[in-house]
Design a protein around this nucleic acid. Structure first.
Lengths: 225, 225
DNA sequence: ATTGACACACTGTTATAACAGTTATATCTT
DNA sequence: AAGATATAACTGTTATAACAGTGTGTCAAT
C-alpha cells in the first residue's frame, strides 16, 4: 500500500510530506476538530508512515499554527481563541502591508494586469451560497499572488504560514451571508498599490485586512471549543 | 557522558534542544562557516545525541534561516547573499514597524521607562572595540524587549526567527568602526512611539531599520563565501 | 462511602539499524 | 592515455523497538 510514496522522477515526496498533507486535510475538513489530541502512533497508522516522519509533520503544523503541543503530553489541534486570532491578524497585517509597499514600488504591467483581473472577479462575482467555494479560492489566490509578486521569499513563506491558520478560522466560523464586499473593494486596493506611493498602498491594505477583523473575532467568540 | 540530558525537575531539556544549541553556537562562532555541509551523523556524534533529534535541530535551524537543505543531498550553513539579506531586512521591517504601531497604542509607563533606559545607554555608550560585545547585546535586548512588549506571541516568534539570521550576518561582517549612531537615535525612536500616533511610530521605526540596511548589504557584498 | 495506592494502558522520546540515493574514486576497457 | 563503468564511501531517509514519563481506572484499606 505504499503507492503514494513513489519517487516520481525529480521531485521527491518524503514521508513527512505525505503525513502532513493528510493531517492538514483532516483538520481543515473538521474531521480533526479543535482541541482533539493527535497521537503520533495513531497519526502514523492513519497516514501509513512511521512515527519519525509524523513528528516532523506535526512540527510543521505547529509552525503553521494549526497544532499546539505540551511537552511530554502530546499535540492537539489549535483552539482558535480570540487572543490567537487577534495576534494572527496583527501579524498578517504586518506582512501584507509590507507586501503592498514593495509592490507599489516594483510591480510590472503584466503582474498588475493579472492581479487586476482577479480583483475584478472578486468584486463582481457575488458571494452566494453556491459560489462560496469558488469565491473563497479566488480570494486566497489573490492574496497569495500578491505575496509572490513581492519577489521576497521570506515574506511569501511568512504569509503562507499565517494564511493556513486563517483558512482554519474561516472554515470553522464564517458563513456566506456574513461576507459582503463593497463593489470596488479589491480594485480600489490595486489602484492604490498602482499609484506608486508606498504609504497610500500600505494604508489601503491595512484597511482591507482590518475590514475582516471584527467579523472574524465575533465569529470566533461565538464558537466555543 | 550523558550529563547534559538530565531532566532537571520541571523543565525538560529534549535531545533536539541540546543539538540545536550546540550547532547554533558553532555557526555563530564561525566554527561552522557559511557553505559548510552539516552531516546528520557527524552532528549526532558532536552533540552526543542520535540522528533523529539532529533532524529536528537542523529543521529548526532551517526555519531560522541559518541552514539550508537540498533534498537527498544534505544541509549546509546558509551563505548570506545580498538577495537573502535584502529579503530578511524587508521582513524585519514588516515585523518591527507593526510592533512600533502596536506599542504606540498600548504601552504602559513601566514598559516605556524600561525601554527608554536601554535606549539611553545605547545612545551614550560609544560603539568602541572593547565595548562592542556589550553594546551589541544591549541593542539586541532593546529590539527583543520591544517585540515582547507588543504582547503578540506570533510577532515575537517571527522576530526571533528573523533576528538569528541578522545576528549571523553581523557576526560575519560588521566591524566596530562601521557602526556609528546619531546621538539621540534610539531615544528619538522611543519618543515617536510614545507620541501615540501609529503612523509616526511606524515611520520612525522604518527609518531606524533601513539605516542599517546599506551598511550591511555592502559588508555582505564584500565577503564572498 | 471515601480515600489511597498500585498497576495498566496510553502518551512522547529517541537510539539502533536497515534502506536508498549521490558522489567520487578506482578500475577496466578501448 | 582517455573514456566509461563499476565500486566504495559517503549522504539522507525512515521503520522498528526499547525507554520513560503521564494519566486513569480499579481494588483494597480505612
Amino acid at each position: 500500500m505504499t503507492t503514494e510514496l513513489q519517487n516520481t522522477g525529480d521531485n521527491f515526496v518524503t514521508a513527512p510530506d505525505v503525513a502532513y498533507s493528510i493531517i492538514v486535510q483532516k483538520i481543515l475538513d473538521g474531521e480533526f476538530p479543535p482541541g482533539m489530541q493527535l497521537s503520533r502512533r495513531k497519526m502514523a497508522e492513519i497516514t501509513n508512515v512511521s512515527v519519525i516522519p509524523v513528528i516532523e509533520a506535526l512540527k510543521r503544523l505547529e509552525e503553521d499554527g494549526l497544532v499546539e503541543s505540551k511537552p511530554k503530553w502530546g499535540s492537539y489541534v489549535t483552539i482558535p481563541t480570540v487572543e490567537k486570532v487577534n495576534d494572527s491578524l496583527e501579524a498578517r497585517e504586518a506582512i501584507e502591508c509590507q507586501i503592498a509597499r514593495i509592490l507599489s514600488e516594483r510591480m510590472t504591467d503584466e503582474q498588475f494586469n493579472e492581479l487586476y483581473q482577479i480583483a475584478e472577479r472578486l468584486d463582481t462575482v457575488p458571494y452566494a451560497e453556491d459560489t462560496i467555494e469558488l469565491s473563497r479560492n479566488a480570494h486566497l489566490r489573490f492574496h497569495k499572488t500578491l505575496a509572490e509578486f513581492s519577489g521576497n521569499a521570506k515574506l511569501v513563506n511568512m504569509f503562507e504560514r499565517i494564511n493556513l491558520f486563517w483558512i482554519l478560522c474561516n472554515a470553522l466560523t464564517v458563513r456566506a451571508k456574513d461576507v459582503e464586499y463593497p463593489r470596488y473593494w479589491h480594485r480600489k486596493l490595486m489602484d492604490d498599490i498602482r499609484s506608486g506611493d508606498p504609504d497610500r498602498a500600505e494604508a489601503s491594505m491595512r484597511e482591507h485586512v482590518r475590514d475582516s477583523k471584527g467579523r472574524i473575532i465575533e465569529s470566533v467568540r461565538n464558537s466555543h471549543y
